[in-house]
Structure formats: structure tokens, C-alpha cells
């Protein structure tokens, strides 16, 4: 059995009396693309933040490349993050910096590269997501939503991570732009040979980028299987979600 690049074991997280994660078990093999489906409020984002170390689980453990990183701080946490890329839902670009400074942020601040060299690598990374050198000196606020996502992707892949997280990569984009982002994600993730975990509720995106799909419901993974099995999961919850029906075992959260 190959070692997982990331493994969550029995992860629980509560906010007051709101038990968001109730024992999540999940693992991703190196080079594998896993999509986690889940409705609004199912705990997808909280799961991602725990996996990234932005939150500490109340119970359970998180293993990165075989090592327990659940409560890591400081240098060991930074060492893990140097091997992880993250594309935030809103791209989360720093609006006080230019586009290339955003893309090269890790190179400048953590790796202490010279600015000239960092800029060259940033422009190379922008090229990979089909953005020209002309945007390098713009501010993030001057870009469209789709372009901001691309810049976010360029920032996530610049240090050639082993694992990339995508938080709703296509939310808020038109279908054509969304598909272009999906293509870029597949191309770049496969190009790096990296593993990826994407959380989404966009079925078109999930079908396209996933090797395997898991479904998170009420703080637990209730189903997992190959992407080709998603229409024959034999799970009523998954069926309802895949076909987007208001009637079924899942109550709409309105």
C-alpha cells in the first residue's frame, strides 16, 4: 500500500454546540485528485482549514506524508506548508501588492529570493495559467474574477507543491471560464504530479477534475468511490446531490 500524502483520521471540530466535523476519515495518495462534495454548511471549508493547519481539530489526527502534523507549530508547520499550495475561493490575493508580488510571495518572503529572480519565476508561473507578462504589474483589483482565480492558481503552483487544495475553484465564474479553470487545474496538477483535494458543489467541475469523489454530509464522509461510479453510487444522499433534487434524504438548508 502506498503511503498517503495526506490523511485525516477521526477529525472532529465544534464551534460551541455546533458540531461541524464528527469524525472525518479521508486520505489522498500522491498524485491523486480527490474531490469532496458537500452542500452549504456541510463542513467542507472547516475540513480544509483543519487539513491546512489553519484550525486545530478538537479530536483526531492529521498526517502529512506519514507524519502527525495535527498540532505542529512554527518551523515544522512551515516545512509542511512549503509543500502545499492553496487556491482560495475568493482567490485571497493581497490587494496591497502587485500581481507578480502576489504570485512570488512565498519566494520573496519565505525562500528569500532576489526580487528580480522572483519576478522572472512569477511571470513564468503566470504564463502556465495563460496570463501574459502585461498583468504582472497590475493590482489584483484591476483583474476580473476569472483572472484573479488564475493568479491564485499561479501563486499555488509556483513552488511546485506535492499537494494542492482547491476551495470551490469554479464558484462565481461563468460556465466557460469555469471550464477553462478546470482545464488549467488538471493540466497543472498533472504536470506537477501533485495530489489535489478540491471541495466543491459544482458537479460539472467535480466530474472533470476528479479521480475519486467523496461526499461529506453532517460532518462525516458518507461515500467515496471512483469518479466514474458517481452516477451509480447506490447511495441515496449522493444521488440526490448529483442530480440536484430538493426532495430526498438531505433537507435543503434554507
Amino acid at each position: 500500500m502506498t503511503l498517503s500524502i495526506l490523511e485525516l483520521r477521526g477529525v472532529e471540530k465544534s464551534f460551541g454546540r455546533n458540531h461541524v466535523l464528527r469524525g472525518v476519515d479521508l486520505d489522498v495518495a500522491p498524485g491523486q485528485s480527490l474531490v469532496v462534495l458537500g452542500g452549504s454548511g456541510s463542513g467542507k471549508s472547516v475540513m480544509l482549514k483543519n487539513a491546512l493547519g489553519l484550525m486545530t481539530p478538537d479530536a483526531g489526527n492529521i498526517f502529512f506524508d506519514g507524519e502527525d502534523v495535527t498540532r505542529d507549530q512554527g518551523r515544522s508547520r512551515d516545512a509542511m506548508r512549503a509543500r502545499i499550495g492553496m487556491l482560495f475561493q475568493s482567490a485571497a490575493l493581497f490587494d496591497s501588492l502587485t500581481v507578480w508580488e502576489n504570485v512570488a510571495f512565498r519566494l520573496i518572503h519565505a525562500d528569500r529570493l532576489k526580487r528580480k529572480e522572483a519576478k522572472e519565476r512569477a511571470i513564468a508561473s503566470l504564463k502556465k495559467v495563460r496570463l501574459g507578462a502585461s498583468v504582472a504589474d497590475l493590482r489584483p483589483a484591476e483583474l476580473s474574477g476569472g483572472m484573479q482565480k488564475r493568479v491564485g492558481l499561479a501563486r499555488a503552483i509556483i513552488s511546485e507543491p506535492d499537494l494542492i487544495f482547491f476551495d470551490e475553484p469554479t464558484t462565481g465564474l461563468d460556465p466557460i471560464t469555469a471550464d477553462a479553470i478546470n482545464d488549467l487545474i488538471i493540466e497543472q496538477v498533472k504536470g506537477l504530479g501533485a495530489a489535489s483535494i478540491s471541495i466543491t458543489h459544482d458537479m460539472a467541475s467535480a466530474r472533470k477534475i476528479a479521480d475519486e469523489i467523496a461526499m461529506l454530509f453532517e460532518g462525516k464522509i458518507i461515500w467515496r468511490g471512483p469518479a466514474s461510479m458517481i452516477d451509480h453510487s447506490g447511495n441515496a444522499y449522493v444521488d440526490q446531490f448529483v442530480h440536484g433534487r430538493a426532495e430526498g434524504p438531505i433537507q435543503p438548508s434554507i
Binding site: 512551515d78 492553496m86 485571497a92
Partner: peptide
């Protein structure tokens, strides 16, 4: 609120 502080952390800053 725009997740830029989370982004800082993930970039080891």
C-alpha cells in the same frame, strides 16, 4: 474576511 490572513499563513508568512 477575504481570507487574505489565511493565505498569508499558507504561504508561511
Amino acid at each position: 474576511v477575504t481570507e487574505q490572513i489565511d493565505a498569508l499563513k499558507t504561504l508561511s508568512a
